[in-house]
Write a protein that binds this DNA or RNA. Structure first.
Length: 318
DNA sequence: AAGACGAAAGTGGTTGA
DNA sequence: TCAACAACTTTCGTCTT
């Protein structure tokens, strides 16, 4: 393979380069392909890291009890039927079964027991909530083809929300979906809210609402979508050559420099850059093909590519 | 006939009073 | 909470290849 210097700088400015060194040739310029979850050497083309088969369990346990409960050795556990609401409650009256008052000594013991039982019940409820959310997360990740670390991160965000009692009154499924969307955004994984909503049981509107809520209340930092984040995904769908992808990145970078990004949807810029790049490389794709791959309309591509061509003085012979 | 173009009206989200 | 607003979408008629 071996990328030339200009390709390399295109990747470098787009932020798709990583800091790892190639095991084969020692080249420090590795490119992150967020869609295939691969890291590729720009010099020798070696795929350093690809989607590995996970031989471990998909759950995490924080203590022995959880480990035992979650282990799949033996009968599979059910999260849905847990205590069936049948757990006992210690009476608040300090009286025995005959109605006689209990001694001061026993009263202290009863008080402690009550306190602990209350704690147990609460932690049980949290466990149940978490178990339900995590099974939904599992389903979403496998449907959306998302990697393990994204899943872990989403689970962590959800856990934090649960700890702060933010889930109460909200739909568990839509909150865990929102957490997943945040994890994708934080890792610049090109999944739109639209796509995630399709896989989810909740509506786009509700996920969006919870997404904003979590960011605000957990004070999470989510970087803005960049047009380059989508380049490999769209390029893959349209089966574009490397040269076209490379030039698209250059067009995007130039557009950003010229202030064409402000207020515009990154997907539109990305799609327009690809459309232009295809024409320049004499490998035309129709506006509707690009629009479909990018999940936007032809009109938006038209508007963006007019702007880009005007500003960057690109002349297309049509 | 397919693709590109652009006008016009509609939609959902953001912002500021 | 509501209106104003910009970006984007949908729809549709027209032009070009």
């Amino acid at each position: 393979m071996g990328l030339d210097e200009s390709s390399l700088s295109a990747y470098r400015t787009s932020g798709l380069e990583t800091k790892v060194r190639c095991k084969e040739c020692g080249n420090p310029h590795l490119i992150r392909d967020v869609v295939r979850a691969e890291i590729i050497c720009s010099n020798c083309g070696l795929v350093i890291e690809e989607r590995q088969i996970d031989m471990g369990q998909e759950w995490r346990a924080f203590d022995l009890e959880q480990r035992e409960r979650r282990s799949r050795v033996g009968v599979p556990i059910t999260y849905t039927i847990h205590d069936k609401g049948l757990s006992t409650m210690i009476d608040w009256r300090n009286q025995d079964y005959a109605g006689k008052n209990i001694s001061a000594n026993s009263r202290a013991t009863l008080y402690r027991l009550r306190k602990w039982q209350k704690r147990m019940r609460v932690s049980d409820a949290i466990e149940r909530n978490l178990a339900f959310a995590l099974s939904e997360l599992e389903r979403l990740c496998s449907q959306l083809d998302l990697s393990r670390n994204i899943k872990e991160q989403a689970a962590l965000i959800y856990r934090k929300a649960l700890e702060k009692r933010y889930i109460k009154g909200r739909n568990i499924e839509s909150v865990i979906t929102a957490a997943l969307y945040i994890a994708c955004r934080q890792n610049r994984v090109p999944r739109t809210l639209e796509e995630i909503a399709v896989a989810s049981k909740s509506s786009k509107k509700e996920i969006g609402r919870n997404y904003r809520f979590l960011i605000k209340n957990l004070m999470l930092n989510v970087p803005n979508r960049q047009p380059v984040d989508f380049i490999f995904k769209i390029g893959d769908q349209l089966q574009l050559q490397h040269q076209i992808i490379k030039q698209s990145i250059e067009i995007i970078n130039a557009s950003i420099k010229n202030g064409l990004l402000s207020g515009r949807g990154p997907m539109g810029i990305c799609a327009a850059a690809i459309y232009i790049s295809c024409i320049l490389n004499d490998d035309r794709r129709t506006q509707s093909q690009v629009a479909k791959a990018a999940g936007i309309t032809e009109v938006t591509i038209r508007n963006r590519y007019k702007e880009i061509c005007g500003k960057l003085e690109i002349k297309l012979d049509v």
